[in-house]
Write a protein that binds this DNA or RNA. Structure first.
Lengths: 307, 307
DNA sequence: CAAACATATAGAAAAAAACTATCGCTAAAT
DNA sequence: ATTTAGCGATAGTTTTTTTCTATATGTTTG
């Protein structure tokens, strides 16, 4: 196998038309070129140069291979150059994992600001169920994860981002509680819909159902908060919807009543996660602090910043 | 500067997801990869892999650079492959030099057969004045030359190819000699036209003019046999035209009378030339013998094969 | 808590690359 | 005709790079 250096020698000698001149230009001695060119010719199985007394000329074969060698060298320089660009970290593509119940309602607030701050940064967003987010992060399918993940192994850094209240959604023709705030006692015996078990959201809802005596309806096994909302509108039950979803998707009060819970005890907490030893961890920290800023600035009417 | 091997290591480790596995696959030991990858990372200024307990994963930067590295490796393999193709010699492009007074009339007979014999051979034909042909060959602008070159330095091999008679061309309304064959004595006092002094043809004509007492007219300074023919038709003088030109371009006997010279003493001789130490010299020999065959087979009614 | 399995490291050995000195050859200058 | 200058090739040595062996370090798993 040849080396890039040999190709440089090839190019330099072809250019200079003489081993000695090329050697001088390259800052090596002439025997080096003699030997290395012979080695390259050996590898390629082709004589590249015709050594005459006056000059060292390309053979027809050398003439044909030279442009290819030059192209390869130029491609190499490109690689080095883009590596140096990438080394600033904010010029890479990172794979971000988020749950389906958060991504569509959080990211539209985040991405424009991040894009503005890190012009050349690209985030490859993939939605996944929380368990899979953590697994995927550990196994390297994701570089960073934002989601409602409570506990992580040592190899993962978890930084709490914000607390997202859950709102009770009920049909307009049904009055759960007369006040704006719903008390936990109001829930007793009610029929509750929720997304499937793979979601943290489901577990939160299970807990409050147990506490209040509400009944968790298992008719729906899905992932879409939109579907859940439709089911509530159709009178199939009540549901707890996260604040960012409500903020972003509930615009018609005549269709659905959305009420906070008294005491603010019903919520989920989202964290920012990455592998502890990821080489880009410092950049992830920086990303994280930008995200915190955006949340505090633009979303603190909806969620409670943490950490 | 990195080596292609380091890029192979990069690719193999990315593929295997583990230094050990990759090392085994590559037939080297694991520390080799540790060291070489670190060196590559150093060169690129970028961390390519995240070394975890379970595996060695690409970093975002590594993920972006991998395709480029693979492309470079594939380009390298292409170079090696085309080099091996070219090494058969008949897959290259050779630069052939010929005089303007020969090329257009000889090559159409040669090239189809050569192309048939060496499918992937390409000849880059350039026309040049004989002196320049020899100079260009010595200096490497040409790889092979076919032309009327009589003597060459030691560094050039000259192989006589064929003898090409010259015919006397005269206007139909002027009778130089009553017979088919013109005797030298018939030429005395006649006005002769010729191409310019840089051509061997001119020198041949000068010689015969001196010998026979014909007068060489210097009104025309050009290179084109076609122009010379037109001038004869217009009655501006006589001219000596080479056999291959006559064979290929003189189709209208009512316009121009073309007569051989008695004794066959007026001719020019073409040779096949190449640099003695050219790495492809063996192929040139083979080319030459093919050319001889074609001449003997297709042109021996017009020229006299030599050598 | 040890076994298994990953990468990292240190130091020796091997291989490759580059250097110095010199040769042989040709071409141009004397 | 001989010398001289300039070219690439070669031999042998030195330096640098690469690879190896052996071992360390750390993490996960049973």
């Amino acid at each position: 196998m040849a080396s890039l250096r040999q190709l440089e020698y090839f190019s330099a000698v072809a250019d200079a038309g003489s081993l000695r001149k090329a050697a001088q230009r390259l800052g090596v001695t002439q025997p080096t070129l003699t030997v290395q060119l012979r080695a390259l010719e050996e590898i390629l199985g082709v004589v590249l140069f015709e050594r005459t007394r006056n000059a060292t000329l390309l053979t027809p074969a050398g003439r044909e291979l030279l442009p290819e060698a030059l192209a390869l060298l130029s491609q190499w320089r490109n690689i080095v150059e883009s590596a140096h660009l990438i080394s600033s970290h904010s010029h890479s593509t990172y794979r971000l994992g988020v749950p389906q119940t958060l991504g569509p309602y959080l990211l539209p607030s985040l991405l424009p600001t991040l894009h503005q701050r890190f012009q050349r940064l690209r985030l490859h967003v993939r939605e996944e169920v929380p368990d899979m987010l953590l697994k995927g992060l550990e196994e390297g399918q994701f570089d960073i994860v934002i989601g409602p993940i409570a506990s992580v192994p040592d190899s993962i850094v978890r930084e709490p981002l914000f607390r997202e209240p859950l709102f009770l959604a009920s049909p307009v023709d049904m009055e759960v509680a007369p006040h704006t705030n719903v008390a936990e006692s109001d829930l007793s015996g009610l029929e509750i819909l929720a997304v499937d078990e793979r979601h943290t959201l489901r577990r939160e809802v299970e807990r409050i159902c147990e506490r209040t005596g509400a009944r968790l309806n298992s008719d729906y096994e899905g992932t879409s908060l939109d579907t859940l909302r439709q089911m509530v509108v159709m009178g199939m039950g009540l549901a707890f919807l996260p604040a960012l979803y409500v903020r972003s998707e509930i615009h018609r009060p005549e269709e659905l009543r959305v009420q906070p819970l008294q005491g603010g005890k019903l919520f989920r907490e989202h964290a920012f996660l990455y592998r502890r030893h990821a080489p880009s961890r410092h950049f992830y920290q920086e990303l994280q602090s930008q995200i915190r800023e955006v949340i505090t600035r633009d979303l603190s009417d909806t969620v409670i910043p943490l950490g």
